[in-house]
Amino acid sequence: MVRRWRLAALTAACGVLIASVKIGDGSPGSAAFVMLIFLGLAIAVSPQVFPRPETAANARLDGRPVVYWRPGCPFCIRLRARLGPDAAQLHWVDIWNDPEGAAAVRQITGGDETVPTVVIAGEGFVNPDPSWVRDQIAPAQT
């Protein structure tokens, strides 16, 4: 659990450190600005930005596409952000939280844990373009 939040906590701690230096220099306004920026970044890299993670076994039950991801991955964050509300149509498996999911990613990528890895109709795609993923799930919406 700690591993999932490490990057978000480090980002927030850096913001606090920089803000405290700014306050010491007599710039409380810029300290508040810096703190807001770093807190926003901490939220962006936190696991809370993603839909509730599922296990790989549960994700494969209904045939919907599965996204294997891990907290702090900038490519996963980009995919999640670009999908917007459509992300709820996908199953999201945190490979740091699910060893079976990590094994599935290693099998698809040839031994690496490269994420995001998206599985659609049984076929795996490593770091696909978010627009392409949206196009693939669009038929499921109608």
Results as ranks from 00 to 15, higher is better:
P28H: 02
A87K: 03
A57W: 06
A42Q: 07
R4K: 08
V45G: 07
S20C: 12
D94N: 15
A121I: 00
V93M: 02
G24L: 06
F33Q: 05
P65R: 02
M1L: 09
A13Y: 01
H91F: 08
A42F: 09
R80A: 14
F50T: 06
L39D: 04
E113H: 07
L39R: 03
Q48L: 15
C73E: 04
A56S: 15
V105T: 09
R78E: 13
T114N: 11
G110P: 04
S46E: 08
W96R: 12
T142R: 14
R52S: 14
A19H: 04
A81R: 14
P65Y: 05
P53F: 10
S27V: 04
Q48N: 08
R64A: 12
L79F: 04
L79A: 04
D135I: 00
D129I: 00
A9G: 06
R64C: 03
D98V: 11
A88T: 09
P85H: 13
W92I: 04
A31W: 11
L17A: 15
D25L: 15
V45L: 07
P130S: 03
R4T: 14
G72Q: 08
A140S: 12
V119N: 01
D98H: 05
V2L: 12
L41T: 03
P71L: 05
D94K: 09
I108F: 09
F33N: 00
G15P: 01
T55I: 08
A32G: 13
I95E: 10
I108K: 04
V45S: 08
D86H: 07
D129C: 01
V49Y: 00
W69S: 13
D112G: 14
Q48H: 13
W132R: 03
L39P: 02
R82M: 10
